[in-house]
């Protein structure tokens, strides 16, 4: 219905009534929609419709993911030791000399155990990247360690083809994450044991932590105690507390 450039005052009056009614109805519909979102049953502490939105974003950005595309790297001079933020999973004592990493398959069966030297035998890689926290701060830092993809290679024969996620947990189970296998296989996803060439400090995740510029810090588990390969997504500490499961950058 096209609108005439000019109308009479009578037509205008009629129109005003109609427009105000339409506008009022639209405003009510908007208000209703807003209340509907707020009153939604929650899925992991956010309204279900918003959780579905996070999942839509996840599928979109997973589709757009290019495995050879790398995050920006920086000069080492710009890097500094990473700021400590969050101590979940690190509150218990750790005996670094007797630390072991347990690896499990999708069914939970133990596939292997490693000491730090096993990881150090894998090809060493370093990267100077911008670490980003979901809270909003960012810091350029440098990580050294083994590529997760090289580590995963050790288990390729024992794993089914449909591994979709990797679950990582601290030794005390106080912190845990699930990360999509796409990200885990990326060149810039490291099992890191060095920060600026020095062994990682305890509060930054000694002896071994996950480091990747493709995820927010909440996904980069410190002090890895256990790794499990999964065929669907698993538990995620902050995902269960209202955050986006994907948390990709």
């Amino acid at each position: 219905m096209s609108e005439k450039p000019e109308i009479s005052v009578e037509a205008y009056r009629q129109r005003t009534r109609r427009s105000l009614l339409t506008g009022g109805a639209a405003a009510l519909a908007g208000l209703f929609g807003w209340v509907w979102v707020q009153k939604q049953p929650e899925t992991h502490r956010i309204p279900t419709v918003l959780r579905k939105g996070h999942e839509f974003n996840e599928s979109l950005w997973t589709e757009l993911f290019r495995e050879n595309h790398q995050a920006r790297t920086f000069d080492l001079e710009a890097a500094s030791i990473l700021r400590v933020n969050g101590r979940r999973g690190l509150r218990s004592e750790i005996d670094l000399d007797n630390w072991q990493l347990t690896v499990r398959g999708p069914d939970g069966a133990e596939l292997g155990r490693h000491v730090l030297d096993d990881i150090k035998r894998l090809p060493y890689h370093e990267m100077t990247i911008e670490h980003k926290c979901i809270e909003g701060w960012a810091q350029i830092t440098n990580w050294g360690g083994a590529r997760f993809s090289d580590f995963m290679q050790l288990y390729e024969n024992q794993l089914p083809d449909n591994i979709s996620h990797v679950y990582l947990e601290t030794p005390d189970g106080g912190y845990y994450v699930s990360v999509d296998v796409q990200t885990m296989r990326h060149k810039q996803t490291l099992l890191a044991y060095n920060n600026l060439g020095e062994p990682i400090s305890e509060l930054n995740g000694a002896p071994l932590r996950l480091a990747t510029p493709l995820k927010y810090g909440i996904k980069q588990l410190k002090r890895i105690g256990e790794i499990q390969f999964l065929t669907e997504t698993g538990g995620d500490f902050w995902g269960e507390r209202g955050y986006d499961w994907y948390a990709g950058l």
Binding site: I46, P47, L50, R51, G53, H54, I134, G242, Y243
Partner: peptide
């Protein structure tokens, strides 16, 4: 923050 992100990104 979590709710802020959920609303913002949708």
């Amino acid at each position: 923050l979590a709710r802020g992100l959920a609303f913002h990104f949708n």
